[in-house]
Nucleic acid binder design. Structure first.
Lengths: 119, 119
DNA sequence: GTAAAGCTTCAACCCAGGTTGAGAGTCAAG
DNA sequence: CTTGACTCTCAACCTGGGTTGAAGCTTTAC
């Protein structure tokens, strides 16, 4: 059981961000009588997954959507939560990349046309 | 010479966005005595480039940075403006993709471990 | 010559994703 | 039993990238 400061330091995020993410409903903590947030291993794991998802460019809205979709089922919950997101993201990225590469080719051609025989 | 409404419709963006982008210094227009914004082909071309750059995930700050870097030189200006941005972005994407793919492999393995011989 | 459509500025608002700070309670150590 | 470190809530603020709306010109069309 971590307290907020410990977990924040451990995962290198701000305490305020942890409070914010909880308020937004994407992570959870356990409250003791003193009112402090405590985080067990499940809470921590979920947080780590959320952070990864954010790094990959998912918005909190997308994350919430997948969480709801998937409900609170059995075990490989978090992986099953993450996999569809990943697959979606990979597809998007593949598409983006292809567009970019096409545009780069176009650009390079343009540049060559516009810099005829200067030297 | 387009007026703002025409250009906005043509490129499928809002008029307010055109005003905003001008205020932010990333595009320009020509003012006539009546106070209206008019857009010549150069203005339009630059706008199109900015819009593409935005689609590719560049922030206005990044765009401004490249614009300043590159000053207002000669001709293939806009391509030379776009190329370094593209190259940077491509690198970033390549990196992201590799991370993602590694993570996906990890995930898939995990899922398999966690769903042993269920049926 | 008047109405509608188009344009102007300016200030206020919106959303996401947080951060900051005040005022107050909790806990461990000396 | 007080000090310092830690935590709580709540409200206000911030940034980026715009949107919305009011009040007032200009231009076009009849």
């Amino acid at each position: 059981m971590y307290r907020i400061g410990q977990l924040a330091k451990l995962l290198n995020v701000s305490e305020s961000k942890l409070r914010f993410l909880e308020e937004q409903g994407v992570i959870h903590s356990v409250r003791q009588a003193n009112g402090y947030r405590y985080y067990n291993d499940d809470n921590k794991e979920r947080l780590e997954i959320i952070l990864k998802a954010q790094q990959m460019g998912f918005s909190l809205a997308e994350i919430r959507a997948v969480q709801r979709q998937h409900g609170s089922k059995e075990h490989p919950v978090d992986c099953q939560l993450l996999l569809p997101m990943l697959q979606k993201k990979l597809q998007e990225l593949d598409q983006q990349m292809q567009q970019l590469q096409q545009q780069r080719r176009d650009m390079e051609q343009l540049v060559q046309q516009l810099t005829p025989v200067d030297p």
